[in-house]
Design a protein around this nucleic acid. Structure first.
Length: 423
RNA sequence: GGAGAUGUGGCAGAGUGGUCGAAUGCGGUAGUCUUGAAAACUAUUGUACCGCAAGGUACCGGGGGUUCGAAUCCCUCCAUCUCCGCCA
């Protein structure tokens, strides 16, 4: 969420910039400022009353020591009266804080100045494209058929065990999956990321910390008995490692990489988008996360994008890089680049990575700060990106590399798979 | 799952109803001294909110309660440790 003081000081900019999301923030911003004024007034009243009560309480203590019962009792009556008022103000304060938070939760992040105006994914800007689109022969088939043909993934078996969207990877399919995970992790570690294996379930505070709660509750699997949520992405547990932490400037940059399965309910998804590996309830992903000094976060974003580009190049997949327009930008992001690979048999681009700078939007909720050179605490910038999401990579690999003799494994993966063809 | 113990500032560790945001030690920072360093000495050293400021308010695992007043008493949740049980 945005900081109230920032909104107050840059009201027009906030409203103007958020318009790029096709979101009119005028109302919310005004309500926020009004509610914050109320909150401040209450705070002042409460502080004054508390100060008074503290003085009286001390006086009573003094009187008791001196044995002046009567004076003490008289003051006690005053104090009791004050106490009532304090309770009232406290209740106001709690309500106002809650109202204010609810308003702040509804206000999306301010897009970076280079984010283009736009309504949907059709308005995203292609900034880079590499690798020729392969032309497959007319017998080429989509990955869900390839998976069946070579017995790599069993979707029906997953349905039996759990339900739709929980595939079973088998044999060379499983090995290939594991090879990709190891390859992605190794490449990130080469770049100085520290590997972590985080919990796959998180508590409510973590969900709030990275912004999945309270809004996107319906997208996560919720274990009600223990009040825990299955992670929709490793971003949640990894970023929350830095919740309520005050860093030193010398700690920057913090770089973590983690492989985890991800669990998403995907309520409301339908149609051909969900076919095969295109959209799953459980899928594997290697995630990179960086905590940066605000001055460096955009340079770091570029480095992260380059890292992901490198992975796709290594895998010899045709890809393109998109700068998301305001309408397609996620709620918490200030700037997001998507990477898509071309799936030759489906003849469409598949999103395989999303790399974002959240600036201080997440940090504000997380309370992740650092001490600047003046010893003042400031919010950090958080960034993350998929490097990479497995299923669609697998889909593209299977489809693009199919030949009469089988599916060719890219050079870089052979040391990990131990085979160079699936047939 | 059962029984018991514990939870205080970066760390260690006092504090069992009032003058405690909290002794003391270590650590950190700045300075004095020194050719330099160490030692010693001096000062400083949590977070958030309100306020132009002076200053005020809140926070002693989380939440709630008792009281004029809570780190201290009560309830509850969480975590850690010890013992027992179960178990990959």
């Amino acid at each position: 969420m945005l900081q109230t003081t920032y909104i107050r000081e840059h009201k027009e900019l906030v409203i103007e910039r958020i318009k790029r999301r096709n979101f009119n923030a005028t109302d919310i911003v005004n309500q926020i400022l009004k509610k914050d004024d109320e909150r401040k007034a209450t705070q002042q009243k409460l502080d004054a009353l508390s100060a008074e009560a503290n003085v009286i309480a001390k006086q009573i203590g003094g009187f008791f020591k001196e044995g002046k019962q009567e004076e003490a009792n008289e003051l006690k009556m005053q104090a009791t009266k004050l106490k009532g008022e304090i309770e009232n103000q406290k209740m106001f304060q709690v309500d106002e804080k809650k109202d204010l938070d609810e308003l702040l939760y509804r206000l999306p992040n301010i897009p970076n100045e280079i984010v283009p105006q736009g309504n949907s994914d059709e308005d995203n800007e292609v900034v880079f494209e590499e690798g020729g689109v392969p032309s497959l022969d007319e017998n080429a088939i989509p990955h869900w058929e390839l998976a069946k043909k070579y017995d790599l993934i069993d979707f029906e078996l997953g349905v039996k065990i759990t339900g739709a969207g929980f595939p079973v990877y088998k044999g060379k399919g499983a090995k290939l999956q594991r090879a990709l995970i190891s390859f992605f992790l190794d490449k990130a570690i080469e770049q100085g990321y520290e590997e972590v294996i985080p919990p796959l379930m998180v508590n409510e505070s973590s969900g709030i910390g990275t912004g999945q709660l309270p809004d996107k509750e319906g997208q996560m699997y919720h274990m009600q008995v223990d009040d825990l949520y299955m992670i929709p992405t490793a971003e949640v547990p990894i970023t929350n490692m830095y919740r309520d932490v005050i860093l030193k400037e010398s700690d920057f940059p913090i770089k973590n990489v983690g492989y985890t399965p991800c669990f998403r309910r995907e309520a409301g998804s339908y149609g051909s988008d969900v076919r095969g590996l295109n959209r799953l309830h459980q899928f594997d992903k290697v995630e990179i996360v960086q905590i940066e000094h605000p001055n460096n976060s955009y340079a770091t974003l570029d480095v992260m994008v380059e890292h992901v580009k490198g992975l796709l190049k290594d895998l010899e997949l045709p890809y393109r890089l998109l700068k998301l327009c305001g309408g397609d930008l996620s709620f918490a992001s200030a700037l997001t680049y998507d990477l898509e690979v071309f799936s030759a048999a489906q003849v469409k681009w598949l999103e395989v990575s999303s790399v974002s700078n959240f600036e201080s939007f997440q940090a504000n909720r997380l309370k992740c700060r650092y001490k600047d050179e003046n010893g003042k605490t400031q919010l950090v910038h958080t960034l993350n990106g998929s490097a990479l999401a497995l299923p669609r990579i697998l889909a593209a690999l299977l489809e693009n590399n199919q030949t009469e003799n089988g599916i060719k494994i890219p050079e870089v993966l052979i040391p990990y798979t131990g085979f160079d063809i699936i047939n």
